[in-house]
Each structure stands twice: as C-alpha cells, then as structure tokens.
Amino acid sequence: MSNERRITLEINGAAETTSVPAHRTLLEALRGLGHVDVKCGCEKGDCGACAVLLDGVAVDSCLTLAWQAEGHAITTLAGLGTPERMHPLQQAFADLGAAQCGYCTPGMIIAAESLLRRVPDPSEDEIRVALSGNLCRCTGYTKIFDAVAAAAAVMSGKGDAR
C-alpha cells in the first residue's frame, strides 16, 4: 500500500517539506528534519517530553500524526528563543536551576508557554495542573514551578527573574 505523501510543515515560522507515510508521528517527522529540541520519551502521551505548540496550544507530538499537522503553525522550544535571545521561561529555568539533565525541559517550557498564553498570571495550583502531563525524574518539580512563576512575573512586567 502506497500511503506515503509529501507534506509541508510550518515549523518555527519556516516551511519545510518532507515525504512521510500516514503512520509517521509528528515527533518522528520533526526529529527526522533535525528538530531534536523535541524530545522522545515514552511515545504514549505519559511524559510530555515531545510537547510542541500547534497554533499556540501545547500537544504531545507523539500522539499527533505528521499529516494532521499540515496547515498548522508548529512551534518547538527553539522557536521560542535562542541562547543569545532567551525567552523569559528559558532564562528563568536557567537562572533558578529548574533543569538538571534537561531532558524534560523543552516539554516543560512548551507546556508552561501554552499556559501563560491563556493565563498570564497563574496561581501555583494552575501551574501544577498545567504541568501535570510533564514528567521530570531529576528536579522534584519545585524549582520548575518557581521558574514558571518567575517568568510569568517578568512577562507581565511585575518582576525580574532574580
């Protein structure tokens, strides 16, 4: 059965074309195109390491088929900021020690960004509920919640990232 097709994905503002079969997940397609800032953990929706923004809303790219993402704006961690020009979430995660091995960090920041776009000034409870689909085996989460709160304060002009 020939079910392979050329698709064009809009990734971090740039159009990229690739030929993939119907069963190829967005996670596999993105990493295949070199976007290895999208991490592969469980491939079944449990860990959140593969989170990307689809039209500004965080989804697990391992539960999305690549064909389904055509026509939607995909944003990965690298699309939020660069080491030279960090996004306030990236800056806060670095400053507050919210990353240890760093494997969960891209998904954590994407999930947090999805929250902050809808709720600019979240309570700690809202941060916890928004990150409950992201597993971290290193940090114990406390510093991650602190970093999201600090970034929210910076982004809404209420404080600096310490």
Partner: peptide, 12 residues
Amino acid sequence: ARVFAGQMVRNA
C-alpha cells in the same frame, strides 16, 4: 475535566 490526564492530552 480538571482531574483528566495532563495539559497536552486535555488539549487534544
């Protein structure tokens, strides 16, 4: 809805 999965799964 509040106690359902995590954010990315709830979004989809």
